[in-house]
Design a protein around this nucleic acid. Structure first.
Lengths: 228, 228
DNA sequence: CCGCCAATCAAACGCCCGTTTGAATCATAC
DNA sequence: GTATGATTCAAACGGGCGTTTGATTGGCGG
């Protein structure tokens, strides 16, 4: 066995990743030092550079690990819907639920660690760190693209640009839904209903309401052509 | 006049605040150093500690300056609505527009600096820095409270907790709307319609759709009392 | 049994951070 | 004209940062 001696194989990597994930979520990327990470993980300081090439490599791997799994589940849910529909266009509510509901599911999973990770991801996605943002976008690209394609098909009368924006708004609402229970109670004082089982229908109602909202009147002056 | 010599009064304070605001928005709070700030502002490094007591004090003042103005405009808009209604309940769409539309207005104002500041604020509000989050919540408290009260009155049939959550979701969508045009184009490649004049009706349609969405079915097991 | 190599370790490296210091510089009041 | 008090300034402080180094460990194939 490999429990007491130094060389303990892939165990060290996992301990570093777990510690880093928790600390990143708690303090943010910049405010979390290598010494904090290796200290909590119980490994040597140099281990991060050895296994991940540096702090940037570690950050990337922390995100990649969970994000790959999340998007795998999302695509699985989407493919299940597609199989059920047999070529017909999907219902928008199903598509939205497959994408955002899966995130909420994952936030509830993972014995509490999932919520923290998704909270971290929501922050980072709009955060200032361009390096991580670009990396996240790349990891997201294929999954988002397939969901958007399905949404376009489900809402053929809605301009694609409009769907794109609303998808973006939905991401924002979901990000706050996952990460912001703390923020919510800040301006209310008494407030403790953070049961994730109730959060899911609450968020879905809101997202679907927003998605189905009436299209805004296009008041672009360029659109008033050929009146003369 | 006081332009060439050392002692130049309140000018130094403003230069520091402006430089800090821009850099905080670009790089985040942690990743912006005092030397970057004083360098861009063209003032001595020690000036920050002299005028604001330290980096924390500077951060606080950067937020306080804009947030006070934003919430002043919001409350002015709300009071205008109340005066117009003369004691009757306000229309939800008006309330939402007074709160979130004013933010979008401010984002378009201030020769481009407004968008940056609000982007920064959206990040910070859900960010990990507890010190700033608490401060923001305090600055927000009164304004949010008065808007929520008005929303409760406008939607007497909707449980307050539900309104609270949806208000929170709206904050998330708005935060992404302001800060996330860059993020949006990341998973689409071609996408450049960031005309703020079109963003406003887009966001409002979404927010109001979400606010009016059907209430989620309450499937709480505790609600099934007294069957036996 | 030995050479190999992946893995771990303690220690140090250079750099930049936020803050402090104490002198220099001015406008103003007397 | 000089004392005063607010402001600016160059320089330094101690400390934490991410990274690198070079030695040490220990399982494994020859």
């Amino acid at each position: 066995m490999n429990d007491v001696h130094g060389r303990q194989g892939p165990e060290t990597r996992k301990r570093i990743l777990d510690a880093a994930e928790a600390l990143f979520a708690e303090n943010g990327l910049d405010a979390t030092s290598m010494r904090m990470i290796t200290g909590r993980a119980g490994v040597n300081l140099a281990a991060v550079n050895y296994h991940f090439g540096g702090k940037d490599g570690l950050i990337q791997e922390v995100f990649r690990r969970r994000l790959t799994e999340l998007n795998r589940r999302r695509l699985a849910a989407l493919e299940a819907l597609q199989a059920e529909a047999g070529g017909a266009a999907l219902r928008p509510s199903r598509i939205v639920k497959a994408f955002f509901g899966t995130a909420l599911e994952m936030a509830a999973d993972m014995d509490g660690g999932g919520a923290r990770f998704l909270q971290l991801m929501g922050r980072t996605y709009t955060g200032p760190n361009e390096f991580v943002r670009n990396f996240l976008a790349e990891e997201y690209a294929e999954c988002v693209d397939r969901f958007l394609t399905e949404l376009y098909r489900a809402l053929p009368d809605v301009p694609r640009e409009e769907i794109l924006w609303r998808f973006h708004f939905m991401m924002g609402a979901t990000s706050y839904a996952i990460g912001g229970a703390d923020a919510l109670q800040l301006f209310t004082g008494e407030f403790d209903d953070r049961d994730p089982a109730r959060l899911e229908p609450r968020l879905m109602s809101f997202l679907l309401g927003g998605l189905r909202g009436p299209l805004p009147e296009v008041v672009s002056p360029a659109a008033r052509r050929s009146v003369a």
